[in-house]
């Protein structure tokens, strides 16, 4: 367990820079919702996940599933940061014949556990994965990242109902609650509030945290592991585009690439904010 969050913050900064580089190089992709979950993923991968990047399909591994698969720049940057893939491979993101497809594809690349992007499907897949691991008497856990706009999908609630019904305590879902989706404010387009009550009513342990506060993220994952009778939903209040001033809380950065000037400014901002 690493309680020195400075090291995790350095990893998160490096992940953020790679997200921007990948999207800038591809000239397409989804930076906003990738940046918002970077701190959560840094804590998960470096402090909690049972995994071995050099043996990516090891039997006893925990599974991470990006149900909000459009955050693929985050997933691939995390895989580079943790050593599943070389950082140089990120240059091939979204390019022909690359393992780093626009949206993640099941086992296409080491560390990619599920196809994600068609919203709700990764969460539903997680239900089967958690049921299967429990049936196989495995101690592995399933971590699934969802978006807030994603919760407008009916399938999310079919899956949530099943997770509660089957008491999948080996499932820990994280909701990246940044409040924005492609067309604008989640609450203006199709409100999901009160989302914590909704998941509670579906028989989840619900934790609400600041998704950029490392101590809170860290203790939430610890709490989820200790629970043995219910699935957990960590509702992480986040800032879309976190770390880049002109992307923060701006829905237009959901799915577009920065130009050269914007890219350079973003990298400069992230470097300036880095823990020395």
């Amino acid at each position: 367990m690493n309680n020195n969050f400075d090291a995790l913050k350095k990893h998160a900064s490096s992940i953020r820079k790679n997200i921007l580089k990948a999207v800038y190089t591809a000239n397409s992709g989804h930076p906003g919702g990738s940046l918002s979950s970077a701190d959560i993923m840094s804590v998960l991968y470096f402090n909690h996940l049972k995994h071995d990047p050099k043996n990516p399909w090891a039997e006893g591994r925990d599974r991470v599933i990006f149900s909000k698969g459009h955050a693929s720049p985050l997933l691939y940057s995390v895989l580079a940061e943790t050593g599943y893939i070389e950082a140089s491979e990120l240059d091939g993101f979204r390019k022909l014949h690359s393992r780093l497809q626009g949206h993640p594809v099941y086992h296409k690349c080491p560390g990619v556990e599920a196809t994600g992007g068609p919203l709700g499907q990764g969460f539903s897949f997680s239900i089967g994965m958690a049921l299967g691991l429990r049936l196989a008497k495995s101690g592995s856990r399933v971590y699934t990242l969802l978006g807030d706009g994603e919760c407008q999908e009916g399938l999310v609630w079919e899956a949530a109902m099943a997770a509660g019904h089957y008491k999948l305590s080996n499932l820990c879902a994280i909701l990246d609650y940044n409040g924005l989706q492609i067309d604008g404010d989640v609450e203006k387009i199709m409100g999901i509030a009160p989302i914590a009550d909704k998941f509670r009513a579906f028989n989840f342990n619900v934790l609400e945290i600041d998704g950029h506060d490392y101590a809170q993220i860290d203790s939430a994952f610890g709490f989820a592991k200790a629970k043995t009778c219910k699935p957990t939903m960590i509702i992480a209040h986040t800032v879309k585009g976190k770390g880049v001033s002109f992307m923060e809380n701006n829905y237009t950065w959901h799915g577009k690439a920065p130009n050269k000037e914007q890219y350079e400014q973003a990298i400069a901002e992230l470097e300036k904010a880095e823990v020395k």
């Binding site: 099941y106 556990e113 599920a114 709700g120 499907q121 969460f123 539903s124 897949f125 997680s126 239900i127 089967g128 994965m129 958690a130 049921l131 299967g132 691991l133 049936l135 196989a136 495995s138 009916g154 399938l155 079919e158 899956a159 109902m161 099943a162 019904h165 089957y166």
Partner: peptide, 25 residues
């Protein structure tokens, strides 16, 4: 123990089946 009634929810029926196959079943 190997039978899962998913209720009247066909999308999740298939998604769950996919997850079970990925877990080796």
């Amino acid at each position: 123990e190997r039978f899962f009634n998913m209720g009247i929810a066909e999308q999740n029926l298939i998604g769950t089946a996919a997850g079970l196959s990925a877990a080796g079943f």
